[in-house]
Amino acid sequence: MVKNKIRVLLIDDEPFSRDELRHLLLTYPDFNVIGEAQSAEEALEKIIHLEPDALFLDIEMGDKNGLELACTIQKLKKVPFIVFATAYPDFAVKAFRVDALDYVLKPFDEEQIFDAIKRIRKAFSAEGEQNGKRPYSNEGLGKLAVQEDETIHYIDPKEIDYIYRDGNVTKVISHGKEFVTRYLLKDIEEKLADHSFFRTHKGFIVNLKQVEEMTPWFHGAYQLKLLNVKEEIPVSRHYVKKLRLRLEI
């Protein structure tokens, strides 16, 4: 169970945009979408009543725009962190004048949303420390979010055989099934630092507990055979010595 979840309110007059944001945020188990609003007036009521930690806020909504709402809520005792989510790039300067954490453009890009998430986490943690509360931590959440078609799965690291980069996509292999994740390999390597994983190649990360054999390949490089995995995993010659030290008693 994730403690200190970050409570988010989605504000946009377009249902499709709210649905898309909600879907993207579902991949972050430490975030909880507590409500939605389709107008600035409805949003203000929900902000006062629900006291969210963060807002994903559209700018052009027909009545009162998002910038006006952002100015209004600065008077509240608890001001949520603001990420503007809009189709209009021209408002960026004005947005940051109301202390927005980030500014993401429609159609939403997963990397943009990920960057916004990181900024919210950092601000939420800093606020907790300042108020003497237990700071937010994303450590120990336990599972990696991956996707199969439209379904999001959460995989225990122990169930992962290996992870590799295929063009612009990161793929996770678990029990013979292939999943996709939005993370880059360097992000996954950092997340799995406390687990039994090793970067064998610029394009591969391997669960060391699955390694069965290591055989010479060419020019000092090797290949790994994993338990119950047909594919052999390359080991760059630059990683061989360090890998042997990790594998051997």
Rank of each mutant, 00 (worst) to 15 (best):
residue 1 M to Q: 11
residue 5 K to E: 11
residue 8 V to W: 00
residue 12 D to Y: 07
residue 14 E to M: 11
residue 14 E to V: 11
residue 16 F to W: 01
residue 22 R to F: 02
residue 22 R to I: 00
residue 23 H to R: 12
residue 27 T to F: 01
residue 32 N to H: 10
residue 33 V to P: 03
residue 33 V to G: 04
residue 36 E to P: 00
residue 37 A to F: 01
residue 38 Q to L: 00
residue 40 A to Q: 02
residue 43 A to P: 03
residue 44 L to M: 07
residue 46 K to D: 01
residue 46 K to T: 02
residue 46 K to R: 13
residue 49 H to M: 07
residue 50 L to W: 06
residue 50 L to D: 07
residue 51 E to K: 13
residue 51 E to L: 08
residue 51 E to C: 08
residue 52 P to D: 00
residue 52 P to G: 02
residue 58 D to Q: 08
residue 59 I to E: 04
residue 60 E to R: 10
residue 60 E to T: 07
residue 65 N to T: 04
residue 65 N to H: 04
residue 65 N to E: 08
residue 65 N to I: 00
residue 66 G to N: 06
residue 69 L to G: 03
residue 71 C to V: 14
residue 74 Q to K: 15
residue 75 K to N: 14
residue 77 K to S: 13
residue 77 K to D: 14
residue 78 K to H: 13
residue 80 P to A: 05
residue 81 F to H: 12
residue 81 F to P: 02
residue 83 V to E: 03
residue 86 T to D: 06
residue 88 Y to D: 12
residue 88 Y to H: 15
residue 98 V to A: 06
residue 100 A to R: 01
residue 100 A to D: 06
residue 101 L to I: 09
residue 101 L to Y: 09
residue 101 L to A: 10
residue 106 K to N: 02
residue 107 P to A: 03
residue 111 E to C: 05
residue 111 E to P: 00
residue 112 Q to A: 14
residue 112 Q to G: 11
residue 113 I to A: 05
residue 115 D to I: 03
residue 117 I to T: 01
residue 124 F to M: 10
residue 127 E to G: 03
residue 129 E to M: 13
residue 129 E to C: 09
residue 134 R to H: 08
residue 138 N to V: 06
residue 140 G to L: 12
residue 141 L to G: 15
residue 148 E to V: 05
residue 149 D to Y: 10
residue 149 D to W: 02
residue 150 E to Q: 12
residue 151 T to G: 00
residue 154 Y to W: 14
residue 155 I to V: 13
residue 156 D to M: 07
residue 161 D to V: 02
residue 163 I to C: 07
residue 164 Y to D: 08
residue 166 D to I: 00
residue 166 D to W: 07
residue 166 D to E: 15
residue 167 G to W: 00
residue 170 T to M: 05
residue 170 T to S: 13
residue 174 S to E: 03
residue 177 K to G: 01
residue 178 E to T: 12
residue 180 V to E: 12
residue 180 V to A: 06
residue 180 V to G: 00
residue 182 R to V: 09
residue 185 L to N: 03
residue 188 I to Q: 05
residue 189 E to M: 11
residue 190 E to W: 06
residue 190 E to M: 09
residue 191 K to D: 02
residue 192 L to R: 09
residue 192 L to D: 08
residue 195 H to Q: 13
residue 196 S to A: 15
residue 203 G to V: 04
residue 204 F to S: 08
residue 207 N to R: 05
residue 210 Q to P: 01
residue 210 Q to R: 15
residue 211 V to P: 00
residue 211 V to K: 04
residue 211 V to I: 15
residue 215 T to D: 11
residue 219 H to F: 10
residue 220 G to E: 07
residue 221 A to W: 01
residue 225 K to L: 06
residue 225 K to A: 11
residue 227 L to Y: 09
residue 227 L to W: 05
residue 227 L to S: 14
residue 231 E to C: 03
residue 237 R to M: 09
residue 238 H to E: 12
residue 239 Y to F: 14
residue 245 L to V: 15
residue 246 R to D: 00
residue 247 L to N: 10
residue 247 L to V: 11
residue 248 E to L: 15
